[in-house]
Write a protein that binds this DNA or RNA. Structure first.
Length: 469
RNA sequence: GGUCCCAUCGUCUAGCGGUCAGGACAUCGGCCUCUCACGCCGAAAACACGGGUUCGAUUCCCGUUGGGAUCACCA
């Protein structure tokens, strides 16, 4: 009988949720959902000095936007110190850990010297066998094996062998009594029954330390999977100078969460040739076996293209929900009603972001159209006045206001005026939207409705008249 | 510097000994067309290098080179 998969995402609240973190969160979440397991959220705030509530809030907000939900937590490491102490005590009593009273200065000097002589900057084990007892400024160190090697059975990278000589007696409890990262993580993962640990490549080097801790604590090892880093355009680790790092920045730029997720997962994971995935498809198809081993470069062009595709393929209701804030931001009060959905339908094929879509949607909601100066000059000319009046009459006469009847009306006007559609469409477009670029003329007219269209056409006619005199 | 990881078009990737090395984004042509898009058709574009193993290597092994990560009382 198979055990239920339990994964986790343990951000440290020292900043917003960034792209790389979002990806490991996503991998863990997808794997848990795919296997109908559990996904645990844990806030690693043992670094009291750098952890903030604001960061925690920002991270939760970002996860919520992405639609990554958790089954347990959030747990806070800062509230679990008793548990850590208990385990440290256990290690101390079995002789697998010891107190160390070496000062920071002597440690620094030691490292300095080691670097200069080309040696490894490791702790030299001064206090290892002194049998010291607790003092005010003592730290607790783990007694690591001096020889042999530790093997990480990594599901994405295969077996990784690290010589134990590479590791020193690392600190598991600071002099202020707070336990360090490696200890806290292991104790948490043991006590939370985490059996699958998927995390960034940058953790490979302390995984053997954690394995040693698991062994010392007599606990079963979880499955490890280290996913490669996300790099910037210059192949350096993604950082602020590569542009936006924060997940919510992408929300604010008008990306759909599902598009962002889709992009993120494809950066380091593949399913044959498939590029486009809905969230449900991802849950259905995500497995650890298909995670790639090489680091990937974050490519905003591809993200943008994928966003456009998601906008195109998502049902208008879903898009509406995310679009509304962008309209509000532009002083346009709109609801996710049928009208807005119809608006979205005309815009989705030509919008790469929600911001772009909002810009393009404003004319639908405007009470009065202001013409782009160049557009008006070029298209709202006296020569078009007559055809425009003919069109107004034709549209007023319509009982049914749908695309076929509109096309008929236009056709009649075109024949009477002896003009091609191209000649009349642009002036009408400017009259209705104020711009030269917009959705298709007929679909747009239908959405706008008979009254509004006629009103705007009459306004345009007036505009032309005034211009003549 | 030590240790560890990685290496297919510019980018994300498929490939799991025999393929005209496939797809997507971006780029460049063309078609469609009421603008802009979408869509469609086409072009250009890659196995880092050197040794092995093998009848045969993009694929397996070793080395070189290049890139990345990490070496804290940070996580």
């Amino acid at each position: 009988m198979n055990k239920q998969i339990i994964t986790r995402f343990p951000p440290s609240p020292t900043g917003y949720l960034h792209v790389g973190g979002a990806r490991t969160a996503l991998f863990n979440w997808l794997y848990a959902r795919h296997t109908q397991g559990k996904f645990v959220l844990r806030i690693e705030d043992t670094d009291v000095a750098r952890s903030t509530q604001a960061s925690t809030d920002a991270i939760l907000e970002a996860l919520e936007w992405l639609g990554i939900d958790w089954d347990e937590g959030p747990y806070f490491q800062s509230q679990r110190s008793d548990i850590y102490s208990e385990y440290i005590e256990k290690l101390l009593s079995t002789g697998l850990a010891y107190y160390c009273t070496c000062s920071r200065d002597t440690l620094d000097a030691m490292r300095q010297k080691a670097m200069e002589t080309g040696g490894k900057p490791k702790y030299d084990g001064t206090c290892r066998n002194k049998g010291l007892s607790k003092t005010d400024d003592a730290v607790v160190r783990f007694k690591a094996p001096l020889t042999g090697s530790t093997i990480i059975k990594d599901v994405v990278k295969g077996n990784i062998v690290i010589p134990n000589a590479e590791m020193d007696d690392f600190i598991i409890q600071r002099s202020d009594g707070v336990s360090t990262y490696n200890l806290a993580v292991v104790v948490d993962d043991i006590t939370m029954a985490i059996n699958t640990v998927i995390r960034g490549d940058d953790h490979v080097n302390n995984t053997p330390k954690q394995i040693l801790l698991y062994q010392a604590l007599n606990a079963p090892l979880p499955t490890f999977g280290h996913v490669p880093m996300v790099l910037g355009k210059d192949r350096a680790r993604l950082s602020k100078r590569h542009g936006a790092m924060s997940v919510t920045a992408y929300r604010d730029m008008g990306y759909l969460p599902d598009a962002f997720l889709n992009y993120l997962v494809r950066l380091g994971w593949s399913y044959g040739d498939q590029e486009f995935f809905t969230k449900d498809e991802l849950i259905d198809k995500f497995t650890l076996e298909n995670i790639g081993r090489s680091p990937g470069i974050f490519d905003t062009d591809k993200l943008l293209a994928l966003n456009a595709e998601h906008i195109r393929k998502s049902p208008p209701v879903a898009v509406a929900r995310h679009l509304i804030p962008f309209l509000k931001q532009r002083d346009c009060e709109a609801d996710a009603n049928e009208f807005t959905q119809a608006v979205i339908l005309t815009l989705s094929v030509r919008s790469k972001t929600l911001a772009e879509m909002a810009d393009g949607a404003l004319f639908y909601y405007a009470s009065k159209i202001t013409y782009d100066a160049k557009a008006a000059k070029k298209f709202l000319k006296p020569a078009i006045a007559e055809p425009l009046n003919l069109l107004i009459k034709a549209l007023e006469a319509l009982d049914v206001f749908d695309e076929p009847s509109l096309e008929n009306a236009f056709k009649t006007v075109m024949e009477t005026a002896g003009m091609k559609l191209g000649k009349i469409a642009q002036p009408v477009r400017v009259a209705l939207t104020g711009k030269t670029v917009s959705p298709g003329i007929f679909e747009m007219i239908v959405v706008l409705g008979q009254d509004t269209v006629i009103e705007r056409l009459k306004d345009a006619a007036k505009f032309i008249e005034n211009r003549q005199t």
